[in-house]
Computed example of a mutant assay.
Amino acid sequence: MSEQHDVSAPIARRLRIQGKVQGVYFRQSTVQAAQALGVAGWVRNRHDGTVEALAVGAPEAVQALIDWAHRGPAAARVERVEVCEEPLPEPLPQAFAQEATA
Rank of each mutant, 00 (worst) to 15 (best):
T50L: 12
E3N: 10
N45A: 13
G57I: 08
V78L: 05
R16N: 00
P91Y: 11
G49Q: 10
I66Y: 06
A76W: 00
A100C: 10
G49F: 14
H70Q: 05
R80M: 15
R13L: 03
V31T: 06
E85C: 13
V24C: 13
Q35H: 05
H5V: 12
L92D: 03
K20T: 14
A69Y: 05
V31Y: 10
G57C: 07
R80I: 12
D67G: 04
G19A: 06
L37Q: 03
E85N: 10
A58W: 03
P93M: 02
A12D: 00
L15G: 03
A34P: 06
G19D: 02
P59I: 03
L15A: 02
E85W: 13
G23M: 09
T101Y: 08
R80D: 15
R46L: 13
V24S: 14
E79Y: 10
L88Y: 13
A9H: 06
L54C: 04
A75K: 15
G19P: 05
V43A: 07
L37G: 05
G41T: 09
A53I: 05
R77P: 04
R77V: 15
H47L: 15
P89W: 07
G38C: 08
G41N: 01
M1F: 14
G49P: 13
A97R: 13
G72T: 02
A75Y: 08
T101W: 00
A53V: 03
S2V: 15
D6S: 04
H70F: 03
R44Y: 01
E52C: 04
A36C: 03
A102P: 11
D67I: 08
A36Y: 02
P59W: 05
V7S: 11
S2Y: 04
E52Q: 11
V78M: 04
E82P: 15
P91S: 05
A34T: 00
L15K: 00
A76T: 07
N45G: 04
E86L: 14
L65A: 05
Q28R: 15
A76L: 01
Q22L: 11
Q18D: 12
E79T: 15
D6P: 03
H47V: 13
P91R: 00
W42G: 00
S8F: 05
W68M: 07
A58L: 08
P91Q: 09
V51C: 11
R71A: 00
V62H: 01
Q63R: 09
G41A: 11
Y25R: 14
T101F: 01
R27S: 05
F96P: 02
